[in-house]
Amino acid sequence: MAKKQSVIKILLKRDLSSALYSWGYYLVLFASLLVSSFILKNFIEGINEEDILVSAYPLNYPLYITIIIVSIYLVIVSAISITREKEQGTLEVLFYGPVTSSSFLLSKYFKDLTLGVISLAFIALYFYLVSAITNLGFTVGLVKALIMGIFLISCVVSFGLFISTITGKIRSSILTLIALIGVFLAIQVAHGTLLGFEQESLSVPMLYLRQTISYLFYGVNWVSPFAFLSRGFDAVALGSWPLYLSNIGYCLIYSFIFVALSIYTMNKRGVKA
């Protein structure tokens, strides 16, 4: 067990330092904060024009957008993390030695999670500075949202890793990810649209379709990592501790299931591209 932990630590160290030296990570972080600044600017201009403060958690929406951008980056990074090593053949070389599917996947999971936590630290610093400059409150809600962010990133990363284990090439990882997110969004949109119709106005086939879409929507709510993101932020906005803690619990269960599925898949498929 100690040897396995040591292997995870060594792989994590190498991978993390490689990721932290890549400009892409900082570019995405900068872009997310730029978008957040733009939203905040509009918000502050709105306040100036209306002369009224309309939000209990004024920084939470920009934070939500920032975390979504970082999450999209992390889901892509984790979705290609294994396929990239498969394609480059470096995965094979690691497996000549004391590396197993579980140690390799856990190192990837913790690497991407650490990247997420470092991003959240930058984001927290940014929002602290914004709060100091604009006098918008750096509230408990914001701290709760930032903490929730860690668990949401955990979901996103474990989902990405799973995509990476079921695909063999970077290209197919990206396409699978886009396809799945597209399907999730399509189900959400279809569900929202069909709910907008009065039941009486729908024909029998359409009623069946609405019912089916409802079931699918319910499923997507537990499969899509981004659904956990919006649920987590809802829990913060509602100020409900039970909801907040249960969402953290769900995130942990979700991450565990997807990491375990990834390990199982990798064991079954082997390490060749």
Binding site: Q88, T90, E92, V99
Partner: peptide
């Protein structure tokens, strides 16, 4: 599957080389 102890005692040079 996932048995690493014997693999710690072997050295491998493959046909194609893959490096970071």
């Amino acid at each position: 599957p996932n048995q690493v102890e014997p693999k710690r005692r072997i050295g491998v040079v493959a046909e194609s080389q893959y490096f970071y």
